[in-house]
């Protein structure tokens, strides 16, 4: 065996942040691909002279707009957590991550409210299945984000206050979700 000159251990290279960035590429293409299929099916239905959204169905616009606003508020709180971690401010870390969790739950609640108000059986139409599939996948991504928030909070509040990278990665994930939801909001809730 050849002996190589010894070297100090490699410094951390932002594994969590880069890993999250790469996974975020997958999140973008996942929702992007689904929206592309949604648009294609919508156009084919409209080209056939039919209505894409079934007659009598009204999409509740207020909760969907609230969801969009909530995402932007949420990323502000996530960025606040990054700022607080840099300053080593334990109280603000807990507060900001707690707020991220609460707003995340509020987004899920708003989505559930939309489903409830819509009162549209999934088997009712192509629109219904596409709507539930796309928004359901988005909700699953939000739940993953909440798990990420919980893990980040446990790590930091458990004593790893110097672990700034996971907070930055956590914020990045929510930024990506906010961008992805913006596209979804425009296509599914606005232009329908």
């Amino acid at each position: 065996m050849y002996a190589l000159p010894p070297a100090p251990p490699p410094p951390p290279r932002r594994q969590m942040l880069i890993g999250t960035a790469i996974a975020s590429v997958g999140v973008c293409t996942l929702i992007g691909g689904m929206l592309a299929v949604y648009i294609r099916l919508r156009e084919s239905v409209r080209d056939a002279g039919e209505s894409w959204v079934p007659e009598g169905v009204t999409i509740p616009e207020v909760p969907s707009n609230v969801m969009l606003i909530s995402f932007f508020v949420l990323v502000l709180f996530a960025q606040w957590a990054v700022y607080a971690t840099r300053r080593g401010d334990r109280v603000h870390i807990g507060l900001s991550l707690g707020l991220v969790g609460i707003v995340g739950l509020a987004i899920i609640n708003a989505q559930a409210y939309v489903y409830n108000q819509l009162a549209l059986p999934a088997a009712d139409s192509t629109y219904a299945t596409m709507f539930y599939a796309v928004t359901g996948t988005m909700t699953a991504l939000v739940i993953i984000g909440l798990v990420f928030t919980a893990i980040t909070a446990f790590r930091l509040l458990g004593g790893r206050e110097s672990d700034k990278e996971i907070v930055a990665a956590h914020a990045l994930y929510w930024y990506v979700l906010a961008a992805v939801f913006s596209a979804l909001w425009l296509i599914v809730y606005v232009s329908k």
Partner: peptide, 15 residues
């Protein structure tokens, strides 16, 4: 690429 295919399969599954 693969998440795009995952998305296609989710849509087809629900449908």
């Amino acid at each position: 690429v693969l998440p795009v295919a995952i998305g296609s399969h989710i849509l087809q599954f629900v449908d």
